[in-house]
Amino acid sequence: MKFLGVKVYRFPLVKYYWPFFVGFGLTFYGVAKIQNAMMDTAEFINDPRHPRFKKGDLEKK
């Protein structure tokens, strides 16, 4: 098989690397939780980039 003029030999990535992909997913979930917790700390709750301002919640906390 060729892709952009380069010979490509397809290797079954998911079959051998699925534990890593699961790990990526778990890490993503954990970092999302950390992000949500950190966004609501005193340091960042009034930051103009906080998504609560886009949702219409404009009061200072």
């Binding site: 380069v6 010979k7 490509v8 030999y9 397809r10 290797f11 990535l13 690397y17 990526f24 890490t27 993503f28 970092v31 999302a32 950390i34 992000q35 950190m38 966004m39 960042f44 930051d47 980039r49 906080h50 998504p51």
Partner: peptide
């Protein structure tokens, strides 16, 4: 800055996946 954590992680994973595909489908077979 916590607003950008997921963004950085997402593009980091994207770059890693692209490298993995490039290495295992093109460079190592070559």
């Amino acid at each position: 800055i916590p607003f950008f954590f997921l963004n950085q992680l997402f593009y980091g994973y994207l770059a890693l996946f692209a490298l993995l595909v490039l290495v295992s489908w093109v460079i190592l077979p070559y």
